[in-house]
Amino acid sequence: MKSASQSLLFLVKFGCSFYVLQKYGVEASVCVGPSMEPTLNAQGDIVIFEHISPRWGTLQPGDVVVAKSPSNPHSYICKRVKVVGDKPFSSRFWKYRQRTPQYVPRGYIWLQGDNADNSTDSREYGPVPEALIVGRVFLRIWPMSQIEWIGRSPKISTN
């Protein structure tokens, strides 16, 4: 029979392990809204994302990420990486329905929703600091009928 101190020690170890796994490993989140259709459903999908890619700087164009919202630090967004500013990069993107040059500096990422006609993204708020990226989405687990791996989109074009 375990003593109270052994039970408490087990709970502390379990709590610490769970915290470390969630903070530095994998985490689940609900992505709701029309901006990522058809990749994700507007009604909401539960996705699993990992925290390793943003920490090691291995994000690439086409990855779907979860990030703190640049316009509201109390909410999170789910978007696709269009450009990683690992070096100074200049390109042209649609902004306010006109083609205007945008610059993605080092340490920043250009995020866009897959549903460009119904997405508030970097075309509105500009490049996003890499520090706001929480993780890279790799699996949709809900709805159960649509469980699938979420990979890098091969259709990403930076022109």
Rank of each mutant, 00 (worst) to 15 (best):
R106I: 11
R136K: 15
Q43F: 08
L8G: 09
I48D: 00
V12A: 13
N41V: 08
I133D: 05
M36K: 01
A67S: 13
V81M: 02
K23F: 13
T39D: 04
Q43I: 13
A131D: 14
P143D: 03
W149F: 14
E124C: 09
V81K: 01
M1N: 03
K82S: 05
R123N: 13
V47F: 01
G15R: 08
P143N: 03
Q22N: 06
S3Y: 13
F89W: 06
P54C: 03
N41M: 14
K95N: 13
C78L: 02
I77S: 03
G126H: 05
F18C: 11
S69V: 06
N159M: 13
R80A: 00
N118S: 10
G107S: 06
P61F: 05
Q146D: 12
P129M: 05
C78E: 10
V81P: 03
C31N: 08
P73S: 04
R140H: 09
D86P: 00
Y76I: 04
V81A: 03
F14Y: 12
D114E: 08
W142H: 11
S69R: 01
I48H: 01
N115S: 11
A4G: 13
S145Q: 08
P73E: 03
A42W: 01
V137Y: 01
S122I: 09
L59K: 14
P70K: 01
V64C: 14
Q112F: 02
Y96S: 09
Q60W: 02
A116N: 13
G25V: 01
Q60H: 15
Y103N: 09
C16N: 05
V81E: 04
N41C: 15
S5C: 10
L9H: 09
W56C: 04
M1Y: 04
K79L: 02
S90V: 10
V83W: 00
E27Q: 10
R106A: 08
S29A: 08
A67I: 07
N72F: 00
S35Y: 10
G107F: 03
K87I: 06
G113N: 04
M144Y: 07
N118V: 07
I156F: 00
I46D: 04
D114W: 13
F49I: 01
S71R: 04
V30G: 04
V83N: 09
S17P: 07
S153L: 04
